[in-house]
Design a protein around this nucleic acid. Structure first.
Length: 440
RNA sequence: GUCCCCAUCAUCUAGUGGCCCAGGAUACCGGGUUUUCAUCCCGGCGGCAGGGGUUCAAAUCCCCUUGGGGACGCCA
């Protein structure tokens, strides 16, 4: 087989012992961006040599997570299916007298003297003394191969050009280099990424929870926002904060990666998600928010489909300015559906007091005759009512808004009413008026 | 304990010896715009961990201290 040896080939090599968390996702992203930027290959290799802890469910979840993020791979391998390769390499070391057997396990002999130099593209040259490395197992007594060994054999066999991985692997690197040398294989370039720490400043762990990529999906984050956020944890491009996926690919480079660990700050992610929600095509936003509307039981499938598509596009365009997540957006969309609001007693006293009955009647009378229920027409009519009643526009707008949306805050009222539609608007206003008369 | 890595506002970061008595972003606090809230715009708060060097000049280079993190498995 011929290969272009200069081609950039990187891999993401997760162990399938749990879900994909944000630290792993960031590592995957940096590898992927590096590959895509350089027109190289991105390989997904599942490191499932720990047969006890590895699960298929975990493999599925990792793949689903990556797919959702939009990180696609060019090749896929499972380390456990490559044991023939590992076995041959082990025998090669056995023949070379580089390993010895003890209690059924195969141990690699580390020279007692000397030192091993790691040339990391980020950390620079790091020197390890052999004496503190100690011999290590490459094949367990059950016949399976350990991480350090399988990793080296696979990276070598797959012609990985750059090993881009978390900082916590830096200490493994001298052992791996020793293995490359013993196997007579070329050593790839190493890039050890600074870690992502939790809010407590310790290593992100699966035990801590809430760091799963899929959790962020469920909480209404956009994959592009997450990608953007992950990229900015350690990587930067001047003062730019918001990046599209394509910009990330175009601009990404190893030299712009920092060296210190970063803490995962959800506040900023929330802000960034809001920015991406404003950036995305409204048509796509409609499709993205639908499952959240259904999930939250704001509307069922039938009700959702009963709304004209154009109205859905209009409403998300109006509502997205104040949405940080798709859940925010879905929640705000409740006004489109025939639900009853829980009017807060105190707020209702303010807007629906008996002295407001004339006002409410005026609003209804003004909107009732409109044939074209458009924002412009609604605004014109409501301004007339305000003038006639001798009050400010807000004194009309707020009671009207509260009656029709159950909220005191929201998008511009005229456009909002247009999207909600004449029927629902008038029905809600009439219901309120009736209640005001009854209670008053 | 041993080894390794790291060190600019609370947080993410720009900064590769002079352009920096340090810039941007989030958060927070004011103000403006608006029918409300948000968005948006303007302003404010806030940092080069400490100490030694090197240099005409250091956030930037070197050393030490301190602090933080990681690794020390027949886990990955």
């Amino acid at each position: 087989m011929r290969r272009d040896m200069s081609k950039i080939r990187v891999r993401f090599a997760p162990s399938p012992t749990g879900y994909l968390h944000v630290g792993g996702a960031r590592t995957a992203l940096f590898n992927w961006l590096f590959a895509r930027h350089n027109k190289g290959d991105f390989i997904l290799r599942i490191e499932d040599t720990d047969q006890i802890r590895s699960t298929n469910q975990s493999i599925d979840e990792i793949m689903v997570s990556l797919q959702w993020l939009g990180i696609d791979w060019d090749e896929y391998y499972r380390q456990s299916e490559r044991s023939d390769l590992h076995q041959r390499a082990a025998e090669q070391l056995l023949d070379a007298d580089a390993v010895y057997e003890e209690e059924g396990a195969l141990w690699f002999k580390v020279p007692e003297q000397g030192e091993i130099m790691v040339n990391d593209l980020l950390a620079g040259t790091v020197i390890f003394a052999n004496e503190q490395l100690k011999d290590f197992v490459i094949r367990r007594s059950d016949g399976s191969f350990t991480y350090n060994f399988a990793c080296v054999v696979d990276d070598s066999d797959l012609h990985i050009s750059h090993v881009i991985r978390g900082d916590e692997h830096l200490n493994n690197t001298p052992r791996q280099i020793l293995l490359y040398h013993a196997l007579g294989m070329p050593v790839p370039k190493f890039v050890h990424l600074p870690m992502i720490l939790g809010p407590d400043k310790t290593k992100l762990s699966k035990r801590l929870g809430a760091t799963s990529v899929l959790d962020y999906k469920a909480r209404g984050f956009l994959p592009t926002a997450l990608l953007n956020f992950f990229a900015r944890l350690g990587w930067s491009h001047g003062d730019q904060e918001v990046f599209t996926k394509q910009e990330l690919i175009d601009l990404f480079g190893l030299t712009a990666i920092g060296t210190s660990a970063a803490i995962f700050d959800e506040e900023k992610l929330l802000w960034l998600n809001g920015r991406h929600i404003k950036l995305i095509d409204p048509e796509k936003l409609v499709a993205l928010v639908e499952p959240f509307v259904i999930e939250a039981k704001i509307a069922d499938q039938i009700q959702w489909q009963s709304i004209e598509h154009a109205r859905l596009v209009s409403i998300v365009t109006l509502l997205r300015d104040r949405s940080h997540t798709l859940i925010d957006l879905a929640t705000a969309m409740a006004i489109l559906f025939p639900i009853t609001f829980d009017y807060d007693a105190e707020t209702a006293r303010q807007y629906f007091s008996p002295d407001k009955i004339n006002l409410m009647e005026g609003i209804i009378a003004a909107l009732q005759p409109l044939d074209q229920f458009t924002a412009a027409a609604i605004e014109a009519q409501l301004r007339v009512v305000a003038a006639e009643q001798g009050v400010k526009l807000k004194d009309i707008a707020q009671p009207c808004r509260y009656a029709v949306t159950g909220q005191t805050v929201g998008p511009g009222l005229f456009h909002l009413l247009e999207v909600i539609g004449k029927e629902l608007t008038l029905q809600r206003l009439s219901d309120r008026l009736a209640a005001m008369k009854r209670d008053g």
